[in-house]
Amino acid sequence: MTLIGIVGAGVMGVDVAINCAACGYQVVLMDKSAEVIAKAQLEIPKRLRNYKMLSPAYRELDASQLSSLINFTTDISSLSDCPWVIENVTEDWDTKASVYKQLDQICSDRTYYAVNTSCISITKVAALMQYPEKVIGMHFMNPAPIKRCVEAIRGFHTSEDTIDAAKEFLKSLKKRMVLVNDMPGFVANRLSHLFMNEAAFLVQDNVADAVAIDSIFKEGYGHAMGPLETADLIGLDTVVNSLKILYESFQDPKFRCCPSLQKMVDAGLLGRKSGQGFYSY
């Protein structure tokens, strides 16, 4: 049975582990924190119950059977024999760099690396590795076991062999890979943040209120959520931070943060998590 290595046992890492095990893979789920690993072990049966609700593919799965396919560890050297390592650690460059430097020492030239990120440069990660052609971005969407689409990112050095292997691997996870090139924000974050920012400008300019803007987006264009309710869900502080990264990366005024959006963050209006954003909760 093929062994899949997963680094980082937070929300995303656990979800990817569930997805891989549900598709018949043996999984090594690694996190440097014993506390996080212990929590992940408890979390898997709970999450499986949730996914039973949303996907017939998970309905017949037994929690103990699924857990038996996942080995939990704090030892990164357990990943040495994995043909695929999917890394899901925090979206922070220093944290990611530290993990990849260790993986580079442990794994062989047969290992493919999937960087699960919405914003970190795949090319920059690959530059840390002896075999940069084996590194590809895989931006899994939340919740990973349910969402079919994966934004795959080709770094500067990513080889065709790695892209083909990624496509096959994701197909085996019942995912559809959409391949894009490496630029800050890739496609998903770059597009979504422009929509959210422009929607904030529309409110600021008194063109329409939040309800009207989101209604047009949903009822007119058929999106599941409007840009402002999405911003409230993500957290307005997170949206502002991402806009700043995009602005700094491209030096393009189209990514300038809407002043009233910044003002809301300054005032502590952060969206759902603070109880007030574009909407009251």
Binding site: R49, N50, Y51, M53, L54, P143, I146, K218, A224, M225
Partner: peptide, 14 residues
């Protein structure tokens, strides 16, 4: 009716 997304069903269970 479109009031909530199907993903919200998971939170309803909890």
């Amino acid at each position: 009716s479109g009031f909530v997304s199907s993903i919200f069903a998971m939170r309803l269970l909890n």
